[in-house]
Simulated scan of single mutants.
Amino acid sequence: MAPGHLSVREMREEDKALVLEMLKAGVKDTENRVALHALTRPPALLLLAAASSGLRFVLASCALALLLPVLLAVAAVKLGLRARWGSLPPPGGLGGPWVAVQSSGDVCGVLALAPRASAGGGARVTRLSVSRRHRRQGVGTRLLAFAESRARARAGGLGEPQAQLVVPVAVAAWGVAGMLEGCGYQAQGGWGCMGYTLVREFCKDL
């Protein structure tokens, strides 16, 4: 399916259930890899070992003392990702959420935007997800182009000469990172814990 066969419109009430499922499915695709990446960093391994050693004095089972901290840490990472990216954001100053729709009327992608927190024009992507059966068909690229047009429009409305679009990407989402790099985005910082990046921020001057 070529991107020209897609249109982008604001989400309607009848789209909400499908969009929520799409967002949750998108988080599930990366949460295990993010958890594995986070928990195999040396500081995390040290904390898990210390927690297991402490639990051995409380629990009768050594196996349970080893497994319990790992299970709790994995659950915490997954819940954090689902809370951040697996739900619909409140309406923002840039409208939306937006959905990509096929010519047949099927919703196949979702995008949400927010104004950048820093001064100047531009926007930040807060949600970007494509349904599994529509991936690698230009949907993500089409939504990204729409996001860029909205960021430019906001910058123009503020009288800013240049806009910037920021897209946060989980460190394990290699497909999304590759798409962004192919569209001219560059990784510029991010956030995480214990000195290790879990989410990279890709930026592009428009």
Rank of each mutant, 00 (worst) to 15 (best):
D205T: 14
Q164T: 14
L46F: 12
G93R: 11
A163Y: 00
V125D: 05
T30S: 13
P69H: 02
P115D: 00
L45V: 12
R136I: 01
A65L: 05
L59Y: 11
P115C: 00
L6S: 04
E10D: 08
R154Y: 03
V8A: 04
V125I: 08
L165W: 06
K78L: 01
W191G: 13
G156L: 08
Q186T: 14
L46K: 12
L144S: 11
V19E: 02
L48Y: 09
S103N: 07
R12T: 14
V101G: 01
L20Q: 11
T30A: 12
P42F: 02
L88V: 10
D106C: 08
G95H: 03
L48E: 09
K28S: 15
G192S: 09
V199H: 05
L94P: 11
L81I: 01
G105E: 01
P89G: 06
S52V: 02
S131R: 13
E13I: 06
A172Q: 05
A76I: 00
V58W: 09
T141K: 13
G121T: 00
N32Y: 09
V99S: 03
L18M: 07
T197P: 08
C193T: 13
R41F: 08
R142Y: 11
A163W: 00
E13K: 09
L64Q: 13
Y185N: 04
M194W: 12
A35H: 03
E21A: 15
D15H: 06
A60Y: 13
R150H: 03
H5A: 15
G4S: 14
R82V: 01
G86N: 08
G189R: 05
A147H: 11
V169A: 02
G80T: 02
M179Q: 15
A112R: 07
A187T: 04
E160L: 04
H5R: 15
V58G: 04
L165S: 08
V176H: 08
A25W: 03
E201Q: 15
V27S: 05
P43M: 02
V70P: 03
P43C: 02
V169L: 03
S149Q: 10
G4D: 12
G80Q: 05
R41Y: 06
V167E: 09
L59P: 08
V34E: 05
R154A: 02
E160N: 06
A60S: 15
A35C: 02
H134A: 10
G80R: 01
P168N: 04
